[in-house]
Structures are given as C-alpha cells and as structure tokens.
Nucleic acid binder design. Sequence first.
DNA 1: ACTATAGTCTAAATCGATTTAGTTGTCAAT
DNA 2: ATTGACAACTAAATCGATTTAGACTATAGT
Lengths: 340, 340
Amino acid sequence: MPVTLKDIAERVGKSVPTVSRALGGFEDISPETRAEVQRVARELGYEPSATAMNLKRQRTDNIALILPTEARPRFSDPFFSEFVAGVVDQAAQHQFDLALASNVGDDECAIYLKYIRSRRTDGFIVIRTKLQDERIDLLRKQGAPFVAFGCTGGDNDFCFVDEDGASGIRQVVDHLVALGHRRLAFIAEPLYLTKAHHRLQGFLEGLAAHGLPNDPALVAVANFRQTSGRQAAKTLLDLPEPPTAIVACNDLLALGAVNEAQARGLVVGHDVSITGFDDIMLAEYAHPALTTVHQPAQEMGALLVDMLVKVIRRQPVEQKQIIRLPNLIVRESSGAPPRA
Amino acid sequence: MPVTLKDIAERVGKSVPTVSRALGGFEDISPETRAEVQRVARELGYEPSATAMNLKRQRTDNIALILPTEARPRFSDPFFSEFVAGVVDQAAQHQFDLALASNVGDDECAIYLKYIRSRRTDGFIVIRTKLQDERIDLLRKQGAPFVAFGCTGGDNDFCFVDEDGASGIRQVVDHLVALGHRRLAFIAEPLYLTKAHHRLQGFLEGLAAHGLPNDPALVAVANFRQTSGRQAAKTLLDLPEPPTAIVACNDLLALGAVNEAQARGLVVGHDVSITGFDDIMLAEYAHPALTTVHQPAQEMGALLVDMLVKVIRRQPVEQKQIIRLPNLIVRESSGAPPRA
DNA sequence: ACTATAGTCTAAATCGATTTAGTTGTCAAT
DNA sequence: ATTGACAACTAAATCGATTTAGACTATAGT
C-alpha cells in the first residue's frame, strides 16, 4: 500500500537508483528527470521507508531511555516526568525519537544488552545512576553511545549531566542553621544511588562546617515512596531527643514527613522544619509550601540529549561533564526552631 | 562489529538460511546442526538485527504517542505522566516499545502522516481528543491502526477508552448541592477538547437535575495552566453575586482557583468550595486537600495498549469502546456554604 | 537396478532503500 | 574516422534477515 521508490520509478519510466538519486539531489540527473521525479513523488505522497533507511544507514534515529525496574514510582515522580519532557522535546529538535522501554522480568542489564545487540537504538540515556552502576559498565564495555543523568562512584570518564546535590543540601543546612536549628535529621534515599549518596554527603559536610555533631541516629534511610518518608519521620520524631529540623532527600519524602508531623499535631515550619529537594510542582502547592532545592529538570534533559547526539555522531563534546549548581527555594516549611 | 547470521554461518560452515532456519526451529534441520548453530549463536552473543527484521517483517514492534503541540504543560501534567507509565509498562508486556515524539514546527497532522508513510510505527495512541479531531480523521482515512484516549463529537466508530466525565462532574455537583450550595461556577478547559465539553455538559446537566438556573456568567473558560485557573477564579469571585462553589475541570485549574481564593483571605472548604478532577498526586497533598474525581490513569493507559495491540494484529476487539465511571473523592476543599 | 521418499541443506528472491561501478549516447576535438 | 570528455542513466551489490523453490544424498520399496 505505501509508496516506494519502485512505484515512482515505474511511473516515470526510469530505474530505481535514478529516482533515488534524483530525490537525493545528485548532479548526474537531468533537470527534466529530476523535476518529473519530484512531481510524481509529491503526487503519490512518497516518504522513504524508515525501516529500509535504518537498515541501509545502520542507524535508527532513535534514542532509548530504559526505565529502571526498582524505582517504581517512576513516572509518577513528577520530577522525572518533567525531565522526560525535556528529553523528548530536544530529541525532536535533532530529529530523534525517544523510545521508552520497561523490562518485563529480566534484569535491567539484559535489556540493555538486547538493545545493543539488536541495534534497536542509536544511544542510551541512563538515569538514576548508582555508585556502582552495572548498566554503565556494560555500555562502556560494549562501546555503545550513552550519556547519564548523574555520575557514579567510580571511573567517571563518560558524558553526564548532574546536579551538585551536596551543594544543594549544604544550602539547606546553612539556611536551617541560620534560623537557629542545631539538631538536624536527614531522610535519605537508598544509598547505592549516587544522588542519595551525594546529598547525604552534603548534609554531613554541612553539619561539620557548622561544628555540629554527627549523630547516626539522625540519619534515616527510606525508599522512594512517600509512605516511607512518613515512616522515617516517625522514627526520627520518636527519638528521646528529636530533631528540630528534618532534611529530606527529595520532595516526596519530605511530604511524607510533613504528613507524619501534622498527624502528631506539630505545625510544620514552626514546631518542626522540613525541607525537600527537586522542587516538583507539588512542593509549591503543598501545605505548608515546601522549602526545597530547585532543579531545572527539563533543561537537564535537553542538555543530555544535546550531548548524546554528539556522542552518537562522534562529534567532539566540548564539555563532557556538566554539573549544575541548584538553588535553594525558601518557602514555608522551614522556620526558626521553637525555643526549648 | 555486531554479530550477524553470516558470522554464525561462516563459523559452522553452513549457509545463512540454514542458520536462520536452525534458530527459527524449522524441522528440516538435523539435530546436530541445530545444536551446533545454537551453541555458536550463544557463544557469539547473537541477537537478530531489529532493523533487518523490521524491514523483512514489515512491522516495527513499536507504538507511537505523539505529544500534542498545544497542550504545553504536557508531561508536567502529572495525570498524563501516570497515564504514560501505564502505557509503557503494558507495551513492554506485549514486546512493544513506546516511541514518544514531539513535533517541531509543522502541524500535528503532518507528523502523523509522516509516521504513517514512512512506516515508522505499527500503531498510534491519540490523546487529548477533540470534538472535531483531524488526527483521527487522518488516521482513519489512511487506515492506520490507532486507539484514542477519549472520543470525539462525531463518528466514534473506532477503539477508545474514555472516562465518563459528565458522570464524574455530576457526582461533584450532587455532592456540592447536598452540602447546601446553590450557586455553582465552572472553570472549563478549552471546549474543543472532548473531555472539557463532556465535563461542562455534566455540570449543566447537574444544575438542571437539581432545578438550578444556568447563569452563563458562572462558566469561565481557561487554558491548561494553573495561572489561568487563578485568572478564571478571579473573574468568578469578582461577580456581583459570586458563586459559593467552584467546580474546576481539572486539578491544576482547581489549585489555581484555590490560590486566588486564599489570596483574597477566603478559607477554601469553608468560605468557598473548590473541586478538581483527575486526582493527581498533588490533590491529596494540597492545602486544603482537594475534593476531586479519581481516574485510574495507569490502568487506562494499559487498557489502551491492550486494545491497540489487537487492532495492530487484526484480532477482534471484544469491547471497542470502554467508558469508565470515575469516583468522587471527597476531601477538604469542599464544604457547606457559609450562611448568607 | 530404478524409482520414491525422506531428510538436509542451499541458491535466489525479497523487504526498500543507497552506493559503486559501469554503460550508453552525444558532441567536440584531433 | 577516431578519440576523449561529458551527461544521463542503470546493473548489481549491499544492509541482515526470511522465505520459496529446489537440489542433493541416502535409504527404502518394488
């Protein structure tokens, strides 16, 4: 049913290569033939077969983003969805599609390997990097083009965009200490995530910078869900000497903590300060509005695509590692500690 | 660099078709040859070339979702991102990838046409349907497999999943009227969207069912952004006889309206009731928590994929039109009207 | 001994493009 | 008339698979 070069060739009474070359703008085609070919092509609504071109050109004009298995909230995480929006838009600018894939059953690396070997995509965007990231090890070993959102704890000789999470959290700590807080707690995401690790580092560095002691009881590790944030807050607030401020590793966890505090009749931003990270849309609308650290999710997605396209085309990447400094956004959920 | 059938053929000293048939499980291959071929294939890490298969099989194992141009918030709309999560997961179950595409410049139909003609995808998921939807007209005329999230105002002889928006809003109206409200306003999305149209219909039907007058001044049309919801609320609350309850067409608009009300010192859920639609995660965490209508976004995405896969494979679809009844979720933003 | 019949395997065509290496025909120069 | 140069085109190979049609060998049946 669809129109092929052969159809055009038959119509104009020329060979297939002639038609191909005519449309391709080659010089060895007479002006009359070219005009005729173009006319017929337009008339029939010819569009080259993407699959045929893929095979011939040995590329797909498609980049892949494989959703991590473990990180379930995934799309429901609004930060992540904004990021994807940035990726899709920028990919479109470069004439690339974005293939989203999710694994059924197999381990994540198996999917990457399958995609590489079946040459299904031109390059990968790896998200939620870990300190030890097998996906990145694999992609490197296979020599597949990729960029990562976040770095790892090891050899970081690859292209990535990251936020300076430690700096972001230090800004939070500085802010809270300036308000008078002395007993700060931290709710972390699983620490094998690079992001989580850096943010916790920032927290500890912040404490040290202000000469505050590091009490291990004040660091709770949660998973990704907000209920887990609530659970962590419960543990922290049940301590004999509870913290006056809780620094959460992301906004969702912070909101879970807010829930717990409010359930206990505490006024957040007054009896206890709670802060988040990411500045998802929700943060602004929550009650109280969440003090958090802003990350330009869309922009980072776009930056990664620009990088990846260069990697795919084997063009030099002027800046292989981009680390953005995030900004503290002070809202209502942080406030001076109650006088003891 | 990647392993092809030819590589295996050379290794085992047989022809390419033999290798292909051995791996394909055909009967006319001796057990020894088959075993040998399989061994070598495993050893070399053979994976068939996706592009070659695509060309030969004339299909791509890929479904496309083209992001509408106009609906800018797009991914930032949390409802939509949950929907996409459902789509990706279910597509993976059927061994399909999801290609997300966004158009640069051209009108939206041009992209659909390009995708169809270049046979880049096996089928489409159309979202944000309009009463008059050129995309659907096009897909039908071209005979391309597709399913839609939402129906149109015209000939609906195609596969779609929709929510009964009118029923959802009627539940809202019933609830508000039961609380004692008599003067209800509606903030609509642009009315060319089927969804917006149905929800407004539901509002008007609800008023009629309770014998309430339909005052055109009490219907404001907004766009997609929450600032626009705020703007609409401003207009409504500035009326000489302002409404005691505002029914918004979606949660984001509702939150905008909440902002406006609060800026005026009104206590939402007390001085004025405000309701939303979609039940995005934000709704639960907003202050006050938003009374809204819940839609199972992920589930609807999954249902659409199941349908689309059948359409692509030309299998019969037992239920071509699925219309789900949404549920009212009563939270804090609705409440009895203040006594006049 | 001669055909049938399996049992294995391969040559060639195909999917729809691109590319390489010619081929053909015309005209100008010698 | 021969040669060379050039313009305009095409045959054939290629990308990596699948499929159709047929080839070849060995064994069984008569």
